[in-house]
Amino acid sequence: MATLQTRATARLMMSPAVILLFLWMIVPLVMTLYFSFLRYNLLMPGTEEFIGFLNYKYFLTDPSFFTALGNTLMLVGGTLLITVIGGILLALVLDQPFWGQGIVRLLVIAPFFVMPTVSALVWKNMLMHPVNGLFAWIARSFGFQPIDWFAEVPLLSIILIVAWQWLPFATLILLTALQSLDGEQIEAAEMDGAGSLSRFFYLVLPHMSRAITVVILIQTIFLLSVFAEILVTTNGGPGIQTTNITYLIYSLALLQFDVGGASAGGIVAVILANIVAFFLIRLIGKNLER
């Protein structure tokens, strides 16, 4: 396979993709880094000056940063909790043979294909609306007071919407992992006298552990950047109760036009994401060697 000629051709064919991606990554990142050390507001042109780490200081000591960080962690953690546990249970159910299994599988993965703005609006208006929403009707039919979701528990509401969108992803991947479990291994365990609970904890769960890690890491990457769902439902409010880091930086940049401050926030977000990415990349890289 490997002759000199093919190797030279190969290098040539890789270069467009590699060069473009390199530029795409490095140019904006360097610019963000540069802006983050400047006083730079689009509303006050001409006042740009180097201010060292002042933007970072403002961003990191701003109380809204801590609220946003807390909200981000709640959003990521809550969604992960629901999707991973729900995903494992759903995968176990979908792995059993029953009539119409294929159709149910399609129903379960459907939310993943719904664009974020649609799912956010449908949930906000048609399901969670305190007067005309379906949940309100259900609550009233059972004699309860309906919850005003986005006023009383705004962050939980967003977590529910996001979890609904990502549950299919977790389910699908965990199901795939489950189906790759060797049937003979399970049979051997049955011969050894393992009950269904111990089979789950000693065989199935360890077998799925890699897939679970992949789900957690990949979802974390995406969940750190949840944006559209917040924009169309709460605009980060009430107050800043649903503002996550991504939304905070967005509002700094495109609502307050504080380029310097938003850039410092952007760098902070990159660092946070990289901590997760570090583990994910190692995991995938290990897989590549096998």
Partner: peptide
């Protein structure tokens, strides 16, 4: 089909660009 010693690194690097949060580069791109 013509992997070299660096192919794996290139792949991992490509993947890492996907890990960059969009807000990190929102300002300059805007």
């Amino acid at each position: 089909f013509s992997p070299t010693k660096r192919t794996k690194d290139v792949l991992m690097w490509m993947l890492s660009t996907k890990m960059m949060p969009p807000v990190g580069v929102l300002v300059p791109l805007y």
